[in-house]
Design a protein around this nucleic acid. Sequence first.
DNA 1: TGATGTGAAGCGGTTCACAGCC
DNA 2: GGCTGTGAACCGCTTCACATCA
Lengths: 222, 222
Amino acid sequence: MKSEKISELTTNRLSVYLRSLNELAGKGSTTVSSRALADQFHLNSAQIRKDLAYFGEFGVRGVGYKIDTLREHLTHILGLDKEHRVCIIGAGRLGTALADYYGFREANFTVVALFDSDVKKIGKKVGNVGIIDIKNFAAVIKRDKIEVAVIAVPAANAQNALEKVMRSGIKAVMNFAPVALKATKDVKLKTIDLTTSLESLSYFLAQPVNQLKPKSGSGRNQ
Amino acid sequence: MKSEKISELTTNRLSVYLRSLNELAGKGSTTVSSRALADQFHLNSAQIRKDLAYFGEFGVRGVGYKIDTLREHLTHILGLDKEHRVCIIGAGRLGTALADYYGFREANFTVVALFDSDVKKIGKKVGNVGIIDIKNFAAVIKRDKIEVAVIAVPAANAQNALEKVMRSGIKAVMNFAPVALKATKDVKLKTIDLTTSLESLSYFLAQPVNQLKPKSGSGRNQ
DNA sequence: TGATGTGAAGCGGTTCACAGCC
DNA sequence: GGCTGTGAACCGCTTCACATCA
């Protein structure tokens, strides 16, 4: 157990471990070794032990990790035992698709509001979630105790949306607009840039076939 | 100019640079320095110069980079001057949203087929793209010269879908299923795992407020 | 002078290897 | 014997600093 800074690469992996533990638990297993986990995704077992050791000594030497208790620990560490209320900004194709994306529920995220500026959309519903005028943003965030914002507006409007989000006091943001946003450092911003991912795939396709990359899916470069 | 192995972090950044150059060109600028680019996204200027120098000496000392020629170079390096034909596997919510995602067009990717196994969906159209029975996968890939596959099926079916993709000879795959897939090393697999991104945000929210992360958006950990 | 291209230093994350414990 | 926890070695990417050149 240390109290160093935890890297985001580590927290990403914790999420992956937890997923695997949930599956193992479903199959009735009770313990698992770092080696067994490492084999499942192509990772190094020492890395798994290190990742876990940041948070405590969860393992038993000679045996491995008890699945149930490790699950509980990871669920708690990742904050998945607490509901998080989410809003989505931009009720376009992507925003509405996200509004009833099942993955949110799994991570204990609840989408409670969908914002747009288009008067034709306001008042309509996507699943259970109503589309609200962006003008009421600050008030709704406060009223509905929203902690997370998802930005699903065109690139040109994204920084603007982020400013509004930050002014409202929200500290966790997921951005889908293909643009590098500037956030103050007390705000956690995750950008998922599909365009860049596609263009990076395109680069791969443009290479002469013989110089194929050596380390497929090492996890670091996904 | 070297001929080392190019890291994926570099190709991702090339995509970002190109985006910026396109914008600058639209504003009528003709040259740009690595410093100016670095300021735009919060990067180090040496990194930009290094990234570009892998592919040639594009800059002019004392001046900077000529925007037009650098754009052409990057477009070519990233293979964006050639159309790539794409199929999407899984005509669920995500698959259909992707089928008319505008970002594909920008990267010169054309979605030509959408596969599903649900007989109720087969034959229907999403935008211009018809939903095809997955049984005809191999034949359609060959007939339509498809080079890229997007996996948008539930996690439990994803590895299976990938096997089918690899058997068909496709070498570039983008996976949206929240699961670590195993690909042979001649295949480029990019996984976009929303669940993990969300859970990592959740971790951030679960931390005591004072130990906020220091390096917001350094690019490496997004 | 001013900005590139690049060797060298720095840094963070991964892997090795082994002591410690069940 | 087997597996965890962890210091040390390693590795790759980033940043520095400066020689180089328009």
